[in-house]
Design a binder for these strands. Structure first.
Length: 432
DNA sequence: TCTGGGGTCCTAGGACCC
DNA sequence: TCTGGGGTCCTAGGACCC
């Protein structure tokens, strides 16, 4: 059996933690650059605000319903997420079993095979109560025989909080049937917009219950091969998507951003790409990896002076490194010429990004006969750099290629304070 | 005027090997 | 002039996730 613990409206809950006046009020949190709405409190959902809607389209509604709006504050969410996950590990892990898989910033799967069926409901309730007690973040818990079914359970727990008290355990066939009959295929974990359309329009399959009864071979042919096969099995209570090892490293690392406002000059794009490269290299070193490929891309939309349509175009450049590296200087030196060859004068640039791939452990770096090496020297330098930036503040020390003016920096006009990670932004209860 | 960021997995097809 | 069979590895692209 699997449990999934999912924080309720996670980003909004984080903001409310330091703004008790906003309890029971509509709250939304925006994506980077204050572009879209990515988290909504229940009150905001009821007010009719859509997930993923661009801010400018919702302005009217936000004003009418007096919705509190926040820019995203990843320092805060990251730190609170860590507290939630630590709490779950304290409750679920023991010396022998590592049962918790952190699935995303606000979700974790827990393997509960060792619990007798009768203990599942009380265990779920305990998770719910202790997490909110220790961290202030409310969560919903779903438990079922497979990951897909546990997500179904969780969704129901969340949707009808009154009735479920945020806990739903599917521990017999009857409960599973009820849950699946009440679930639209489009709401299944693993069925996205494309497959949902296909299932409904082409095959007349509308509920999870209908999908569960489709033959395996049909799913192999029509639902993404092995992916579809697993979906059917999981719906039938046969677990195929196992708990992941928490020590696994990432296979690619990307840093990409929209610019705060459109950018036209090569110089500015190069500064942005140098900055993103430095950030990506930092993430790379944090997991002790080195990269063998580096991709740079830019997105532009139209030419200056021409009529506006939103048809962004992507340009990519790929580079195979002679020797895997995690050295910021070397990665920037590689990235900048790639930017130059992508640049078209007069185009209006919206976004750029850097993707590091072919990641290998950096303690087992393969030597290259033709590349000269001063790896040790650079590694010490990078470590010093990371230490300074970690203990002081981000970007305390940076590469000159990253620029100083930073016209392209993203907008975050409504960000709350980083209450839990910065001394100078601590929550103030009383002045003097 | 304004539309996020960072990942994963799978498959098909080409290059290359003996 | 004739030119196989069975593999592996890599990449691009598609689909999905939060």
């Amino acid at each position: 059996m699997f449990a999934i613990v999912d924080c309720n409206s996670f980003y909004c809950s984080c903001e409310r933690l330091f703004r008790p006046d906003l309890h029971n009020k509509p709250v939304v949190v925006l994506s980077n650059n204050d572009g879209c709405i990515v988290s909504r409190s229940d009150e905001a959902k009821r007010a009719g605000i859509d997930m993923g809607a661009p801010l400018f389209e919702s302005r009217q509604l936000i004003k009418e319903k007096q919705v509190a709006v926040f820019s995203s504050n990843y320092h805060l969410y990251g730190n609170l997420s860590m507290r939630v996950m630590d709490t779950l590990r304290a409750l679920a892990d023991d010396e022998v079993h590592r049962c918790v898989e952190v699935y995303s910033v606000d979700e974790a799967f827990i393997n509960v095979d060792h619990l007798p069926v009768g203990h599942l409901q009380p265990f779920a309730e305990k998770l719910r109560d202790v997490v909110v007690g220790w961290t202030g973040i409310p969560v919903s818990v779903g438990i079922a025989p497979s990951k897909v079914l546990s997500k179904v359970a969780n969704r129901i727990a969340k949707k009808d909080k009154q009735k479920t008290q945020c806990v739903m355990v599917l521990d017999n066939d009857e409960k599973v049937q009820q849950a699946l009959m009440a679930t639209d295929v489009a709401d299944l974990w693993g069925i996205g917009r494309r497959y949902a359309r296909k299932l409904k329009d082409l095959y007349g399959i509308n509920t999870a219950w209908q999908l569960k009864h489709m033959p395996i071979e049909w799913a192999r042919k029509n639902l993404g091969g092995i992916v579809g096969v697993r979906m059917i099995k999981e719906l039938n209570g046969e677990s195929c998507i196992l708990l992941k090892n928490p020590l696994e490293k990432k296979k690619m690392i990307a840093t990409t951003r929209m610019f705060g406002k459109p950018v036209f000059t090569l110089q500015e794009i190069k500064e942005a790409v140098a900055t993103y490269t430095a950030r990506a290299a930092e993430k790379l070193r944090r997991q002790n990896s080195a990269a063998t490929t580096l991709d740079v891309f830019v997105v532009y939309n139209g030419i200056e002076g021409q009529p506006y349509t939103y048809e962004p175009k992507h340009l990519y450049n790929h580079f195979l490194l002679l020797k895997p590296t995690s050295d910021t200087a070397q990665l920037i030196k590689t990235a900048l010429p790639l930017v130059e060859s992508l640049y078209r004068k007069g185009a209006k640039y919206l976004k750029a990004g850097v993707v590091l791939g072919g990641l290998v452990p950096d303690d087992a770096l393969q030597g290259n006969l033709f590349a000269t090496s001063n790896v040790h020297q650079n590694r010490a330098l990078m470590q010093a750099l990371d230490n300074i930036n970690f203990s002081m503040r981000d970007d305390m020390v940076k590469f000159a290629a990253s620029g100083l003016s930073r016209n392209w920096k993203m907008r975050q006009e409504m960000r709350s304070k980083r209450f839990t990670t910065r001394w100078d932004e601590l929550y103030l209860i009383k002045d003097k």
